[in-house]
Design a protein around this nucleic acid. Structure first.
Lengths: 348, 348
DNA sequence: AATTCAGTTTGCAACGTTGCAGAAACTATG
DNA sequence: CATAGTTTCTGCAACGTTGCAAACTGAATT
């Protein structure tokens, strides 16, 4: 039996000095180098030595000092999430962060979140990360077709992954919701319900997803011979404004009989406004929205939705990023999430 | 004019080596110590020297290396937010993070977020932060009266601030929503509307706020001679369940004529369920809820609410924490946010 | 007994920063 | 013009880690 004298001595609870490699070296009588090498599983070491070091390290509660490692190796063991202020998808931030958390659990990685206030300054945010060596990799969301952030990150050859695709020729890691399928599914569903005049309410037109949805929407509708329209400029709009707009729409002559909405926030305004206008969803008019939070299904249990799982997206983005940091081929780091339809009742 | 030859040479965009103190020392011909001292505003230096160093540092785009500073001084320049998975307050995470971001903007601090999956393991999370020297300070939310996390942090004499008060005798920094006022305001409002049987729907009973609300609720109602009741065990409940419960409540014999709800998530279920039951809010029954997101006012523009500003809370918590880290007296680091009533119509 | 060789272990330097004891350069004093 | 006293600057060591060249073991080979 080895002598385990000072079991968890210098933990946060204890009083003693911090346990470093030096401590272990002194206890084992080995050199710093050997201890360091041991802990990292050096194969040139005698197995018994390694075991002994590991045992002592464990019993002492050794935790490598992040600053030491970082200074020496340049590795921060941090990933950064750039969190813009977008509110379209309710509960997006929380789920994304929890997803990331799930994926870094058990690794040595920490998550730092960089809040962004206006999207206009997103380039500055990235430059900051680059200049300050904030992290080993970055996750960005709400990616645009020619997103300048992606360009910067690629130029700097800095590991990153985007939530959303781009139109750049050079490939880069991404994970994305398959918006084309979303649009196609939604159109098909509305057609099946008998809709002939479908309106698309798509939010933030700076994202690639907006682009993809609009295109796929047009294509699917064209294929089925359905008339389409779009509600433009809804992005800067206050919820109350949009609600009023929906009311007017409900009472106007050009009223669509089907609506597709890619934002939960806007869906709430729309549904409320249409309700104000006396419309009954499910008979007068059908609606399909992109669902990310648990709120809307509670609120509107009868309305069809198609789900994007943001928690899983966070997990997946992190998985991809960590692989990229570890040096994986980019070709393998591009994945899509398939939309999951949640059709409610089926009396058309 | 001083010679600014190599303007922003070795930035992320450039090719050169990283700019360190050594670089500046070489350019200025001064020693490392002098440069270091200069940059930190050493008063024993000749002003011209300081200016020269600062000028060169600026033009070279010098940014202190976090690992170097941290290794030498032990200061991480990081604050940590423990983010539990609570969903009561919609959009809580996003607003809190943005608020923190606003407060650390321009400082050298970064924010790392530690997602927590089950509250049951919250002690482990804190121990992790302590053992790993993750941050210079921690922000915790959803604080309980005898919160073990607070106890641990106080024992370790580690800087922290809690969103929510505790019942510990030793004082610690906190920022809290004034729940007592919330409850009193809500009761008074309902009384004014003519309610005689008020029900409180208060969520997570592990928090101090829950306690405060219940107590203040009882007191205020007693003072006004109003009958009270409480909907218990709603915390683990699925939204759909609660909605059904509200429906039953609406149709049952014991129906209250006023409801106070401290959670947006539950408010949605309640209002929906009461609506299912055919009740008209504003005449059959009045409701006051605690509002944190922008969603509910859009959805229910006619329902009274009392607002807690989570963004401001994030700002304030950070302000307090940074002061605590800087060594401020704890007595000055305890603040309350006054609830802001948003009464809607006033015909009654 | 000297040499080679693989298997193990170690010393040293460096990453970028700061605190401190002291050195150098001035200035004022007798 | 030495001496003490200021003012201003510098060298050194240390924080904890890792990579590398070199050194030490034995055992096997000449």
């Amino acid at each position: 039996m080895s002598s385990k004298k000072s079991l968890d001595s210098a933990r946060s609870t204890g009083t003693g000095q911090r346990v470093t490699l030096r401590t272990i070296a002194e206890v084992t009588g080995l050199s710093l180098s050997t201890v360091s090498l041991s802990l990292r599983g050096g194969t040139t070491l005698r197995p018994e030595t390694r075991d002994k070091v590991n045992e002592v390290a464990r019993s002492l509660g050794y935790i490598p000092d992040r600053a030491g490692v970082r200074l020496r190796t340049g590795k921060t063991n941090v990933i950064a999430l750039v969190l813009d202020g977008a509110e379209d998808a309710i509960d997006f931030a929380r789920q994304m962060i929890q997803g990331i958390g799930q994926s870094i659990k058990g690794t040595r990685y920490h998550l730092t979140v960089i809040p962004e206030f206006d999207r206009h300054s997103s380039a500055d945010t990235i430059r900051y990360v680059l200049d300050n060596r904030t992290a080993d990799g970055v996750i960005i969301t709400h990616t645009g077709p020619r997103d300048p952030r992606v360009q910067m990150l690629m130029d700097a050859d800095f590991p990153f992954v985007s939530h959303g695709r781009t139109e750049f020729h050079t490939p880069h890691p991404y994970h994305d919701f398959h918006s084309e399928t979303f649009a196609a599914l939604a159109v098909a569903r509305l057609a099946q319900k008998g809709c002939r005049r479908i309106m698309l309410v798509a939010g933030d037109d700076s994202t690639t997803n907006h682009h993809n949805i609009v295109t796929a929407f047009g294509k699917a509708a064209g294929r089925l011979g359905i008339a389409i329209s779009m509600l433009e400029n809804t992005q800067g709009m206050q919820p109350a404004q949009l609600r009023k707009l929906a009311l007017e729409l409900a009472q106007g002559p050009e009223r669509p009989d089907g609506i597709i909405c890619d934002s939960e926030m806007r869906t709430i305004s729309l549904v409320s406004g249409l309700g104000d206008g006396g419309l009954v969803l499910g008979s007068d008019l059908h609606l399909v929205y992109k669902q990310t939070s648990g709120i809307l299904p509670t609120l509107f249990p009868a309305i069809d939705s198609i789900r994007e799982d943001v928690f899983s997206a966070g997990q997946e983005l992190t998985r991809l990023l960590l692989q990229r940091i570890a040096g994986a081929q980019i070709g393998t780091l591009q994945t899509l999430a398939e939309p999951v339809p949640h059709w409610r009742s089926d009396e058309s």
